[in-house]
Amino acid sequence: MTHAQGSAATLLATVSAGRRYPLAHSPLARLFDRRTTPALLGASLEVQAGDVLGIVGESGSGKSTLARLLVGLDRPSSGRVLFEGRDLSSFTAADWQRFRNRVQFVFQGAHTALNPRKTVACSLSEAFPAQPTPGALNALLAQVSLGPELLDRLPHQLSGGQKQRIGIARALARQPEVLIADEPTSALDVSVQSEIIALLQQLHRERRLTLVIISHDLGLVGAFCDRVLVMYAGRIVETGPAAQILAEPTHPYTERLVAAIPRGLAGRNRPADPPLSEAARHGGCPFEPRCSNRIPICAQDEPPEILLGDRLVACHLAPSRAIIAETNS
């Protein structure tokens, strides 16, 4: 992140990419009303080839906006998005074509991910650059463990898990190197969820597919990803190896997230999380109103990102807490 971008294996990167949406809907109204709402405030990240990166955060944290920027569905209003060191905004049509072949997206398995009036065969055929042969379609379905009998079905005739597999197959049609998945399992039952995760893991193993998984479920991301990026209020607040972040979260928000993961019997009688005040903040640390460790400076200065070992944390207290943790151990 803070290291210079452009190491050989870096595929995708953002450099303090931000996105603000105008409040006014029409361009005419925008002439008079220039107010905007920020969805993402300066996020920097790097995706290396072969990475399994998880992006976690609650709704409104900007994680989906970041994902849409990464795949070119949306343009940043500040900062840059780079693919192999080149800014997406400088892409020509041919560049986009190549980019689409290498970076693909899996949508949340909700009902709108597939066109309700198109058969599976039709939806998948469109995903290929040229009209595929029947054999290619069957092979694509086989990659996501589905049989060719589904080809002439319509989306409403598929189960939730099947729909999500079709969604993954559609993204795989161009044999991309990077797959970005936005909440790939949140619309599914737990048992189906684990099947989809197993499928993604298998794709990563067998095809060295680089994966970026966006989720609100830290448990899922922690169990699946190598590296985790925690987002809060449009900012990245903590980055680091998944195992470390789950075992000893540094940022107080990450701490909260980890504590909130349901743990079955082990989670019985754990102290209740105090309700949080939800006041909006301008200036200072975005998490300050909800933070139980806050100190006066938190209300004034936005914390810088501090590098602690493998981790990057945006918290004023992170260095002192790291020292305490070290002396304790």
Partner: peptide, 13 residues
């Protein structure tokens, strides 16, 4: 249209 475009379709509707 979808049926016509679908080469893998086994049976027409």
């Amino acid at each position: 249209a979808p049926a016509a475009k679908a080469p893998g379709a086994r049976r027409a509707r």
